[in-house]
Design a protein around this nucleic acid. Structure first.
Length: 154
DNA sequence: GCCAACGTTGGC
DNA sequence: GCCAACGTTGGC
């Protein structure tokens, strides 16, 4: 089992959008970064858990948990020229971009803020708090995962 | 293959 | 809105 962190701008898609339709399956389309793509395509497995992170907003924070329910397949939003994620260099015969499907697991009782994550020494190696990190998908070590979960009830 | 210009991300 | 830190593009 692997653990992940996935960013979303809450003004576009938030944890409440997830929580309001708890049984819906979501395809994580629109990833257009090779490192993030490679992790989704090669390493994300059914049953893996992912933190849902609010980025580019007033209070950047981890706000809940999702689970991978379908492993990688071509991101068809890249094929549709009317889609905002259209990429003419990707096509069904040779797809460049991939996505996974996810479902809602739970919303945290409180946001675990970036500010809070930055000050704990145990998370110094978490990619999220490393300088200049802009990856929209990143791995989380099991020890980091457990530590962050414990922060929720501190 | 180098690298300047440009575009994007995302915290603040 | 600012800007640092990237990633991408394209001329050479």
């Amino acid at each position: 089992m692997n653990y992940w962190l996935m960013k979303s701008e809450p003004s576009v898609f938030s944890i409440d959008d997830l929580a309001n339709k708890p049984n819906q399956i979501y395809c994580w389309d629109g990833v257009r970064n090779y490192q993030a793509r490679n992790m989704m395509r090669d390493d994300m497995k059914n049953g893996d858990l992912a933190f849902f992170y609010h980025s580019n907003c007033a209070e950047p924070a981890i706000v809940g948990i999702m689970q991978v329910v379908k492993e990688s397949y071509p991101d068809f939003s890249a094929f549709d020229e009317n889609d905002k994620y259209f990429d003419p260099k990707s096509n069904p015969n040779n797809p460049r971009w991939f996505m996974v499907d996810l479902k809602f697991i739970r919303k945290f009782s409180r946001p675990i803020t970036l500010k809070e994550l930055k000050i704990v020494p145990q998370l110094a190696d978490l990619a999220l708090v490393r300088r200049g990190n802009r990856l929209s998908i990143m791995p989380v070590a099991a020890t980091q995962w457990d530590f962050i979960l414990n922060l929720e009830t501190d």
